[in-house]
Amino acid sequence: MVGSITRSPEIKPVIAFHDVSKWYGDVIGINKLTLDIMPGVCGLLGPNGAGKSTLLQLATGQLCPSQGRVEVLGETVWNNSAINRYIGLCPEQDALYEWMTGREFITCCARLAGCRKRAADAKADELLELVGMTTHANRVVRGYSKGMRQRTKLAQALVNDPQVLFLDEPMTGTDPVARRDLLEIIHRLALKGTTILVSSHVLYEVQTLTENIVLMNHGRLVAQGSIRQIRDLMDQQPHRIVLVGRNIRSLAAKLLEYPDVAGVHLGPDGLSLVAQTPRPDEFYARLPSLALSGPWTIDEVYSEDDNLDAVFHYLVDK
């Protein structure tokens, strides 16, 4: 683990993984994961196959840990259906009961959650309104677009007013309008005090939701904390600075003469290079004179580490 969040000792975690591993035969899904998720919104990031869905399925009691213990709201979740009163899950898979209308589906989920018929009908109306599906509620689900399915899946996750909400790639495949609406809904739920763990492999989606992130790769926890904290951790590692210009090959040879340059990679276009340096201040200070000292030009300079994407790729590639 690269880093962990600092927090007040009085606040107890809502979701806790204690040395959890999960194998699928000889395939490892989660590898010795110890993780505490505190109240609020937390982003779960990682590339496809990182173990995000496995983590969510473990946290919602759908999978049994091969080793270790998973707790939500202080309760073990495996084979504890009672905990489902307090949690909601928006699964990654698009499957719904295709032959139902959207309204029937939400009503059915509300009734499965324990609502009586009249209460379930009222809940369905309320949630369809919340996710902006009222006008399509009486259409059969089979004809729904990806965005409509995501909205409907989110609505079913809210039928029991969950205290903890798990969202597995909720924005995948949605159009910009649906994405904006879903983000807005998640924001509103967070303001109401719902603890939300949202997984994604698209970083800016999560960045707009929360500062708190958990980074996973190959079933392992790569980093946990605020984006700022993780950026601080990065400062201890070589920064990647991109230089774009002409005669870039000779510039690369020159850069390698400096002791603070850990490595240089030429871009595939031959017009750029990526320099790695653990002391970016010295590197940037040298650039003006360097630009004038040889047969090269430097037209553009930027850091690959300026966005969360870079943080993520940096950490998972490490």
Partner: peptide
Amino acid sequence: EDQTLTYLFIRPIPK
């Protein structure tokens, strides 16, 4: 197979 089992297992009904 239909991948709808999740909608049952996340309800407060024992398996």
